[in-house]
């Protein structure tokens, strides 16, 4: 390729470049198609894994978050951006968070708090267009849940009471069963002593407790479920 050949081929490649840009120009100018997302008028489609500042999840069954103020997130945060307080709440056993302060300007969205949360109540929010005149970006994550807190405490109290009574009943039942068993065993021992026979009655003893457990008025489900499992295959257990 000589001098003129080089000049010509260079000129040709320039024209190729101009053809490409003109095709893009024509697509936008004549085709009225561009790739711009007109942000304030249109909102972007955020990816499912999009990360923004953390927030507390609102669970459907309780209508509020499930933070127990264990401070696992506060301890694991490498940026020291979480400060939370909380603890025992009057009336219920469960601990609740009182203030969950997150400084968005310190957060680097590493997600360690989300991994560390024992109750899985933290997740990334989809807040993506924050800007302001103020340098204070501390956010109270519990704020939006405050109004539901009393309701939740009331519900939780009821649940806990129920659970407590159930537990008490269960404990009583177990106690009764134990006593009954003891009595029976004592009886048996007496019988055995009386007969002074040579055979052992082990299969009998395995079958007897269920029969005895049916006696207490407040038999609870797990105890009932155990009845078939002792003898028959587990397939029957869910039926009952």
């Amino acid at each position: 390729m000589g001098y003129f050949g080089k000049v010509l081929s260079g000129f040709g490649s320039l024209l190729t470049g101009m053809r490409i840009t003109f095709s893009q120009f024509a697509k936008t100018f004549f085709g009225r198609k561009n790739v711009t997302l007109q942000y304030p008028k249109e909102q972007p489609k955020l990816a499912p894994a999009f990360r923004s500042a953390i927030k507390l999840i609102r669970f459907e069954e309780t209508g509020t978050h499930d933070c127990v103020a264990c401070k696992a997130c506060e301890r694991i945060c490498p940026s020291y951006c979480i400060k939370l307080s909380g603890g025992k709440v009057e009336g219920i056993k469960k601990k609740r968070v009182a203030e969950f302060e997150m400084d968005f300007s310190l957060c680097s969205l590493c997600g360690l708090c989300i991994d560390a949360c024992p109750t899985d109540t933290l997740e990334y929010s989809k807040v993506y267009e924050e800007a302001g005149y103020n340098r204070d970006w501390r956010v109270d994550l519990v704020a939006e849940f405050r109004e539901y807190e009393a309701e939740f405490v009331e519900k939780q109290r009821v649940i806990e009471e129920k659970a407590a009574t159930a537990k008490k009943a269960k404990a009583e039942a177990a106690k009764k069963a134990k006593e009954a068993k003891k009595a029976k065993e004592a009886e048996k021992a007496k019988e055995a002593e009386a007969e002074a026979a040579d055979t052992a009655e082990k299969p009998d003893t395995a079958e007897k407790p269920p029969a005895l457990e049916a006696k207490p008025a407040k038999a609870d489900a797990p105890a009932k479920a155990e009845v078939p499992t002792a003898e028959v295959p587990t397939a029957e257990a869910p039926k009952s």
């Binding site: 893009q24 120009f25 936008t28 711009t36």
Partner: peptide, 10 residues
């Protein structure tokens, strides 16, 4: 405008 259109923006 021309630069925008060549770059497919507005």
């Amino acid at each position: 405008k021309v630069s925008a259109w060549i770059q497919r923006r507005m």
